[in-house]
Design a protein around this nucleic acid. Structure first.
Lengths: 162, 162
DNA sequence: ACGATATGTCAACAGTGCTGACGTATATGG
DNA sequence: CCATATACGTCAGCACTGTTGACATATCGT
């Protein structure tokens, strides 16, 4: 694009720029998830399984309700994939010690293995894109993505959760 | 197991940074599409309908096979939503003049209306995020998203296609 | 003891991918 | 002109994932 979109007039957003952004998100997200989808299909799993595996790996001991908050789906939808993952020994449930109603979720070794298999390619893809783009671009990417998401999701990134 | 972060990655890319990127994409994309999904649901449509509406609006006169290339789905999947959109008068098909086998796709007025309704909020969301982030960040966002997507998709952005 | 909360489950339905199998119209090369 | 390839459409069936609605059980807190 030989167009002066930056510089003197940085806030002037043409329709073309907005359309481009929509498409960057569409193609980027599609290609980002495509490889993992293939691996999942071979195991009889889908993207929902991946998300559960991912976030349980990310937050060991997470409760079912926290996981529901993160995923933004109904408990019935989660139950379908979660119970399958527990049954097939990818995820372990432990009764909460403070609150016995809770079922704390952990990856088993088998679960860790699958998580690694699934996200290795995704991490490599991100790492390569980050490296090519450079540190300043990475910071810009973060800023824009944070701006796109809802407040509730943005808060996850603002407050260090560990 | 608890901490494989620093060390392996050049350019200071910690495991934490890569995980954050994965989550930025997940939450960003999820929230980006959520509002449009609600509007679509009210019409008995889904995200697939939106994509068809969007890309036909973007490329008036596009052929079915080009649309298939862009969407990356099978013709049977496309047919289901496309024939519905044609039947309900959102999209118009014209027989190709050079090649009579082709069915060139156009939005009807009704189609344009729906497209506008669907993407107005998305554009506003992008515009707000872009404004907050600033021109430098926008450029970085573009760079990273281009780096994440596959070559074939990236080419759509490199070569100005109109 | 009682109401609220955390979780699980059964059932039905919708949307959107997929594969496989055909069918028609049109273009193109020999 | 004919044979083959291409563009498009469609029927059928299956899988995954989201939804709503209705219940059920265990546990917590008062």
């Amino acid at each position: 694009m030989a167009d002066p979109k930056a510089g003197a007039n940085p806030l002037f957003l043409r329709d073309e720029d907005l359309r481009a952004a929509i498409e960057l998100l569409f193609f980027g997200y599609r290609d980002f998830t495509a490889r993992a989808d293939v691996i999942l299909a071979k195991q009889g799993f889908g993207r929902a399984h991946h998300r559960v595996i991912y976030f349980v790996g990310r937050h060991p001991g997470i409760t079912v309700s926290s996981l529901l908050d993160i995923l933004g789906i109904t408990k019935q939808s989660l139950s379908r994939v979660l119970s399958q993952l527990v049954r097939e020994n990818y995820i372990l449930q432990k009764k909460g010690t403070q609150d016995g109603r809770q079922r704390l979720l952990y990856l088993t070794d088998k679960g860790h293995e699958l998580e690694k298999l699934l996200t290795t390619e995704q991490r490599a893809r991100i790492a390569a894109a980050y490296k090519d783009a450079g540190a300043v671009a990475v910071d810009g990417f973060r800023k824009v993505m944070l701006g796109i998401m809802n407040d509730s999701a943005r808060r996850r990134f603002k407050t260090p959760e560990k």
